[in-house]
Design a protein around this nucleic acid. Sequence first.
DNA 1: TAGTTTTTTTGCCTTTTGTCAAGTAAGTTT
DNA 2: AAACTTACTTGACAAAAGGCAAAAAAACTA
Lengths: 192, 192
Amino acid sequence: MYTNKESLIHFILKVVEISKSDAEEIAASFHPFKLREKEFLLKENQISDDYLYLKSGLMRTFLYNLKGEEITIDFFTEDNMVFEITSFFNRVHSEANIQAITPCTGFRISYKELNTLFHNKPAFRDFGRAILVKEFMASQKRNYGMINRTAKERYQNLLVNKPQILKYSPLKFIASYLGVTDSTLSRLRKNL
Amino acid sequence: MYTNKESLIHFILKVVEISKSDAEEIAASFHPFKLREKEFLLKENQISDDYLYLKSGLMRTFLYNLKGEEITIDFFTEDNMVFEITSFFNRVHSEANIQAITPCTGFRISYKELNTLFHNKPAFRDFGRAILVKEFMASQKRNYGMINRTAKERYQNLLVNKPQILKYSPLKFIASYLGVTDSTLSRLRKNL
DNA sequence: TAGTTTTTTTGCCTTTTGTCAAGTAAGTTT
DNA sequence: AAACTTACTTGACAAAAGGCAAAAAAACTA
């Protein structure tokens, strides 16, 4: 399997100020990883054991609302970390699913491996914290954007910030992610 | 100044599985802290240096939208941690403000103190991570709730989960937090 | 307490979004 | 290719929420 970790090393160095050799050591602990289109990384009720760097591809996390409809909670694009925080860090059964929309490749470690690194490698400590901070910030930003924008503005925003999603994801995933019905999104799109 | 840290020790033990003596040692590193009603913990453009355990009182974080209106992003209730993640962890100027709604008391540490603990005290490492995970989860949950509920449901949800807020916060803070206008919230409230 | 300011409520009307249902388009399977 | 399924679009109408302005209530100040 293809194991060139340049992209991961580059990603680590982008996220936290550590030496290149530290970054290489961290990357060395990750294992190659692959998913086919529509394949699941995590299904609800499982305990997640993947802390994943997504090198290429598009994924989404979703759950079911009270009516049994799929609600897409988040998209994961390439050159980002992917994990279900609650299940992975608290070792509890997941309420969410994580699914590949396109074929995906990347590198992963397990919870056990992460903890070993976390306690033994100060550089990884900083990396791990930086990732949590980064994702937390993204979640807060998303919150703000969802509350203070109309559906149309939210769509336009997505168009600018994550065009990959619009390109590869079916409309219905995007609609539930934006919190509107399929019909509404279809109409929004019509008015460019 | 009143420095009984029982509540903080209890909070730490609730969040992470460590020994009582570890929790006491962590708590010992925190310093007493007080804010008057309407006083600011953080103003926009400052670099936050407070990692705070709120023992009593109610706070909010807010920023200004494009029209110059205050948008309340989050409320902080007693027995929770308070910090502006972006500014505090990335040492950048804050876009947000944090303000006491009622008089507040608690215990705080600085960024420097946090880092010393983080690298020297394994138990604090786990605590720090658990807090980030906890807050991240809360943010995600809020996201989901904002998108898939009507304003009325969001209000009712707040009513059940954080009644303190409804008791002490003016309506307009709550309205912007829920993403509706003052008028709309006033009408929602009328229909109980 | 009278006057001032801020907060909350209400009415009227508009815009946004949802619901339901039907229709078209596209993708799979046999 | 025909049959079937899933995805997307569109129309007609209903409900949710916003904009604006004025009134009422509450909080603050001199």
